[in-house]
Amino acid sequence: MQANALTGGFANPPADAANAFRGLMEAMARPGTIRRIAGATPPAPLSAAAGTVLLTLCDSDTPVHLAGGADCDDMRSWLAFHTGAPLCGPQHCQFAVGTWEALLPLSDYPIGTPDYPDRSATLIVEVPALEANGATLSGPGIRDEARLSLPDIAAFQDNAARFPLGLDFVFTCGNRVAALPRSTRVGASNDAAAQEEAR
């Protein structure tokens, strides 16, 4: 185990985790809003926000899937030391973390059962940019309409169509976080529609 696996955890776990969870809960309750969360310093390639989400929610009860570049020795030992979360493939994970391309295909993840729709995976998606523009969002938690830069649109529409089954997404970029629960209805961005018309 590398020495740097021991650093980068919460300095004051109860308060740091409580503040990080408040930001994450507000993000999940109000899809499209972007919050700042901090506290953890995970090894590369993970962002501070993704590391903070992992330390806030994961422990030995939650199998985690590290996707693509996130599945490196540094990350494995950092996660093992700070959370004790078992690693597993996408089929049995409760949480998965990685870039959008690395996490695909979404059909690999558990979406819950009709009796227990909560037994589904939460995907922590590392995105290069996180802005309040792009795809339109509506549904619970959104007064009229919200906008969020999403890596895809059709995939989230398919996910929402399965409600109450489905996956929940947390987007992380630097120290910022946003969320997209399965209850949110996603529409194409006006920009994309405008481009389509221009053609």
């Binding site: 109860p14 308060a15 409580a18 994450l24 999940m28 009860d61 109450p164 399965r182």
Partner: peptide, 27 residues
């Protein structure tokens, strides 16, 4: 006491349940 009485592992378990509850309103 630990902050807010409960231990951290218990709070994580409750927090995960709250997030799933918010994702599936009313369930």
């Amino acid at each position: 006491y630990n902050f807010a009485y409960l231990d951290e592992q218990t709070k994580r378990m409750i927090r995960r349940a709250i997030l799933k509850g918010l994702a599936i309103p009313g369930y």
